[in-house]
Amino acid sequence: MVKTQENYVAARTVDEISVNAEWCKRCGLCVAYCPKRVFDQDAFGRVIAARVADCIGCELCERLCPDLAITLLPERAVAHG
């Protein structure tokens, strides 16, 4: 198993992780690189946010996802500048 990204930052509280099954191509990057192993893949490779309570809000899954399929909720307010 690959090592998770070392410089993640805990940044926000997350109530829910939305995985858009229509857009997800099941590449497994979120499953492999989540530092808290929040995601599982079912027998068909579909991604499930199985342990949302463990999420530390580092946003790595959201940003790594090539399919723009993952959204952490509630959405973050962006400070412009």
Binding site: K25, R26, C27, G28, E62, R63, C65, P66, D67, L68
Partner: peptide, 10 residues
């Protein structure tokens, strides 16, 4: 699936 170009778009 897994193409990095999507991550760049992101």
């Amino acid at each position: 699936a897994g193409c990095g170009h999507g991550t760049v778009l992101n």
